[in-house]
């Protein structure tokens, strides 16, 4: 059992490092090749954990090789367009002006049910509302609605909207996160003045967010012990 414990620790570190090296693309929307690599990695990592007679070094070398191939592959895909197309294919239009491209969906082995399900997932229940539906290389469907069916935007309605920007977390669980100060034009003096105005101490803050206009939202911790 002690051997298993040590093997699990080694494999755990190896997998964490590998996933970290492969980047966030792995965790988000995966391309088919990335999905295959991820499944392969999990299989290879599981082998020496399940069977102590398997040399762990074989798995380590295999995982490191797969990770390096994946990184090189993703860099090549990024730099060389033709290579990317060869590997990932093209995005394909499956609906044009409310009409399903039947040849295309036959070629993609995509059923009408799958297509309708993907549309419904995006809040589109009537195929006639769709101007374009595009099957992306990661298997998801992007939808562009017909102009008359698109949600109204302030621009379309000629309404001027104040841009307060995105609120950033500047304090969390009683700790100041000064990394985000620059993003919301905040200084330590400003921060202190906001906190003092709200009559709250930093250690009592559960979450504090500030946007570019300087508007702050503070959520205090419940049952904060105060001296």
């Amino acid at each position: 059992m002690f051997i298993t414990l040590l093997r699990v620790i080694i494999i755990y570190i190896l997998v964490i490092v590998s996933v970290r090296l492969m980047g966030k693309r792995q965790i988000g929307e995966m391309q088919p090749t990335e999905l295959v690599i991820t499944i392969l990695l999990s299989e290879i990592a599981a082998l020496p954990i399940l069977d102590n007679s398997q040399p762990i070094i074989n798995s380590i070398v295999a995982v490191l090789l797969l990770v390096s191939f994946e990184i090189i592959n993703s860099i090549l895909s990024l730099k060389i367009g033709k290579y990317r197309t060869l590997l990932q294919g093209h995005s394909l239009i499956v609906i044009r002006n409310g009409v399903i491209d039947q040849k295309q969906i036959m070629r993609l082995r995509l059923t009408v049910d799958d297509l309708l399900e993907s549309l419904r997932e995006q809040g589109v229940f009537d195929i006639n509302d769709v101007e374009y539906a595009i099957l992306e290389t990661n298997g998801k469907i992007s939808v562009l609605l017909k102009p008359e069916k698109r949600p109204a935007t302030p621009e379309a309605l000629n309404i001027k909207v104040d841009d307060k920007g995105m609120p950033f977390v500047v304090a969390y669980d009683g700790k100041i996160i000064d990394d985000n100060f620059e993003e919301c034009n905040l200084t330590m003096e400003k921060f202190n003045s906001i906190v003092n105005n709200q009559r709250v101490r930093v250690k009592e803050i559960l979450l504090m967010m500030v946007d570019k206009s300087g508007e702050a939202t503070i959520i205090k911790k419940e049952n904060t012990k105060t001296k």
Partner: peptide, 21 residues
């Protein structure tokens, strides 16, 4: 930077394989 990491990993894995052999 990531490419260098990948190249280092590749060289490391290949070296380990040859060395072990």
């Amino acid at each position: 930077k990531r490419l260098y990491v990948a190249a280092a990993l590749l060289i490391f894995s290949v070296s380990i394989s040859f060395m072990c052999y």
